[in-house]
Amino acid sequence: MSLEHLDTKQPLLDVRGLKKFFPVKGPLGSIGGVKGYVKAVNDVSFHLYEGETLGVVGESGCGKSTMGRTILRLTDPTEGQALYRNEDIFQLSGKKLQQVRKDVQMVFQDPFSSLNPRKRIGQTLEEPLAIHSIGEKQERTERVMDIMNKVGLQLDHYYRYPHEFSGGQRQRIGLARALVAGPKIVISDEPVSALDVSIQSQIINLLQQLQEEYKLTYLFIAHDISVVRHISDRIGVMYLGQMVEYAPTDSLFANPLHPYTQALLSAVPLPNPYKKKERIILRGEIPSPMNPPSGCIFHTRCPYVMDVCKTEAPTRAEAAKGHVVACHLYGERES
């Protein structure tokens, strides 16, 4: 989609200062009290506009999946806001929350464990329609059959159980379940990470076709930045629970600013075997999210570390139009 006028539009989803901390208890459990917190998501903010795809990329364990689950309130936030059509999801309850969960659906990372092994696929796909009181029994069956056809499943799959499908088919089932209730936003959590490359391309192309047909908005979570590049209008880069850079896709790949983003992109292989690029190797281990470094969270592995990085956390600065980075190399202008 065109990104020229996004800054003048009202975001469909506006996430502000999202935090999710998990308590770590002592060896005696609740008796020993809480000895610390795992800061899985730590002050993440972003906008998601109608019809676009925002990709979120980062190493395993950086908090991407937790962020997606927290927005949907599958786990309760520690702090922050998630405004959907100007209403804070974290403050809703009852019918209003149920309506939001109809409009904001999720494709889970594991396409097998997210399906009930005791239910036939038809029952699983009709369940969201029953929960949201959409249609009568016959209408629900027809709607499920239509969605199954759209995602490339055969109609006889309606009567089968999850163990009878391949990984790619299960991922299509998960996508069908997310779409059947007619959502506005789909949060896709690593939807292709467990699939073969050929199947990955099929699922990505399917996602794009469905987005165009149903006018969907995607929050696409993945660790493979090449996949994210193919599907995303904008990309956010997460490290240790924080979003350190986000920008339009072309801008990010043409001019990555944060040292962590530069390292990620240097690991992407070039399609031309005669061209070479310098690989940036990050030294040291990823810090524990239970005890993140002071100052800039990346300073323990950054090749450009300065004294200020060790004591002061950088503020977000807009280095170019729509290109925001949290790094002391680019000044202190808050976006």
Rank of each mutant, 00 (worst) to 15 (best):
S2D: 15
L3Q: 07
T8K: 14
L12T: 09
L13G: 02
L13W: 02
F21D: 05
F22I: 00
V24K: 11
S30A: 13
K35P: 08
G36I: 04
G51A: 04
G55I: 04
V56E: 05
V56L: 14
K64A: 02
K64Q: 01
S65P: 01
R69G: 02
T70Y: 01
I71Q: 00
Q81A: 09
F90K: 00
S93Y: 09
L97N: 05
V100L: 05
R101K: 08
D103E: 12
V104D: 03
Q105M: 04
S114L: 11
L115M: 07
E127Q: 12
L129Q: 08
S133R: 13
I134L: 13
T141G: 15
E142V: 13
M145V: 13
M148W: 08
L153V: 03
L155K: 12
R160V: 06
Q169I: 00
I173R: 05
A178S: 08
A178C: 02
A181N: 10
G182K: 07
P183Y: 00
K184W: 11
I187M: 06
S188M: 09
A194E: 01
Q200W: 10
S201K: 15
I204C: 06
N205T: 10
E212Q: 13
L216G: 09
T217L: 04
L219R: 04
D224T: 10
I231T: 05
V237N: 04
L240V: 04
L240I: 04
Q242N: 10
V244Q: 02
Y246T: 15
A247N: 08
T249Y: 06
T249W: 06
L252P: 05
N255E: 15
P259W: 01
Y260Q: 09
Y260K: 09
T261P: 03
Q262T: 12
Q262K: 12
L265T: 13
N272G: 03
K277C: 12
I281H: 13
I281V: 15
R283M: 14
G284L: 03
I286P: 14
P287F: 03
G295F: 06
F298P: 11
H299Y: 09
T300K: 00
C302E: 00
Y304T: 10
D307W: 09
R316Y: 13
V325K: 11
R333I: 15
E334V: 11
S335P: 15
